[in-house]
């Protein structure tokens, strides 16, 4: 009995168990400090839907051995360009959201392709380089947002008539365009964005299906044993590049879904740190630097977003202080740190 518990803790890793227990504690404590459970659950689900696709974007690259995708901002930038263009063209409703995705797709493919080629030349150092490629691409886009010729009065600075604003509202264009499909309310506080969930699970389904094709099978093998893959005729670099492209496209879709739920497009330094919560979520769900599944995405996103939703309300009520930011930083980075120290690379 004690052994099975020990094994379970070892398999799951103590940080994950602590995080899960913490979330359970938050839900149990919520009623005692007058935090409404239905509202909390609803918030958690909404945020799950918002972030799920971006977390899913981690999976292909982990599978192919490229490590944690700290370069997610690249996909996000493609998504932002799609979204901004769709607003510029005054596209509304579902047409607007899917239009944004359609325009983001070719950009994401091009970015992902270049990014993949780069990562193939720096094998072993992907994560650090990905981080800084992400950072510098966000920074260069800051310059671009200022000088790209967008001129919709809904988006540019009023006083100058040029240069995009830091946040752009999509309320009158396509906020909740997907989310409101077959959505329902349950009492005053419970809202369920059915459409977002359908979209997320469609994405998951597509990835799951892809993983069962010949190419998908090969991709997973490249990550777990590149020597084996090579010996069986798999082109390692091609698989890696493909996985980076898929990740980048998912990142673009992910940010558009995020914006349609959130109601705003955040430009400039907005996407700067967006990779980190997604990375942390997939790790909390049970993924490692080398292995990730769709189940990890679902579990991890629920746990992580649950904590983010619940801590401000519950902990604030308990100790009368807002510690949520600190808890978020410690939980997410602690989880990444734990995963990074689990395996020592190479032989000694």
């Amino acid at each position: 009995m004690i052994n099975t518990i020990k094994n379970f803790i070892e398999d799951a890793g103590w940080p994950r168990i602590l995080i899960a227990l913490f979330l359970v504690f938050l839900f149990v404590a919520a009623p005692f400090v007058d935090v409404r459970l239905d509202a909390s659950v609803s918030d958690t689900l909404i945020r799950f839907g918002m972030n799920g696709v971006m977390v899913l974007a981690m999976v292909p690259m982990i599978q192919s051995g490229c490590g944690l995708n700290f370069g997610l901002p690249l996909g996000i930038i493609a998504g932002l360009l799609g979204a901004v263009t769709s607003v510029q063209l005054e596209m509304h409703g579902l047409f607007g959201v899917f239009g944004a995705m359609a325009m983001a797709t070719p950009l994401a493919i091009i970015f992902g392709w270049g990014y993949g080629l780069l990562l193939n030349r720096v094998k072993g150092d992907e994560m650090m380089i990905a981080t800084y490629v992400g950072f510098s691409s966000v920074a260069i886009m800051c310059v671009m947002w200022l000088i790209l010729p967008y001129d919709s009065p809904k988006m540019v600075w009023g006083y100058a008539g040029e240069g995009l604003r830091t946040t752009i509202s999509v309320e009158e264009f396509w906020q909740n365009a997907i989310g409101d499909i077959a959505s329902f309310r349950f009492g005053e506080f419970f809202y369920f964005p059915t459409g977002v969930f359908v979209f997320f699970f469609l994405c998951c389904g597509a990835i799951a299906l892809f993983m069962r094709t010949k190419t998908g099978t090969a991709m997973a093998t490249v990550g777990s044993n590149p020597e084996f893959a090579k010996a069986n005729g798999v082109n390692i670099n091609r698989m890696r590049t493909l996985s980076v492209i898929i990740s980048t496209v998912l990142g673009a879709y992910g940010i558009i879904i995020y914006q349609q739920s959130f109601g705003f497009i955040q430009l400039y330094m907005g996407p700067f740190y967006m990779a980190f919560p997604a990375v942390a979520a997939v790790l909390i769900g049970g993924a490692s630097v080398k292995k990730a599944s769709i189940m990890n995405v679902i579990v991890g996103t629920i746990l992580f977003q649950g904590i983010l939703t619940m801590t401000p309300s519950v902990i604030n009520s308990i100790i009368q202080t807002d510690m949520s930011e600190v808890i978020r930083i410690i939980v997410s980075n602690g989880m990444i740190l734990y995963a990074l120290t689990r395996v020592v690379r190479g032989r000694e």
């Binding site: 094709t213 010949k214 099978t217 090969a218 093998t221 777990s224 044993n225 020597e227 084996f228 010996a231 069986n232 005729g233 798999v234 292995k291």
Partner: peptide, 29 residues
């Protein structure tokens, strides 16, 4: 190098057996 090159240690027997035929002859699809 059986464990290094020959096998996918963390995968099932069936995956290992069919992998090469699947990749190179598009069998088992």
């Amino acid at each position: 190098d059986r464990r290094g090159v020959g096998l996918l240690l963390e995968e099932s027997i069936e995956w290992n057996i069919i992998f090469s035929a699947l990749q190179n002859q598009s069998g088992f699809l």
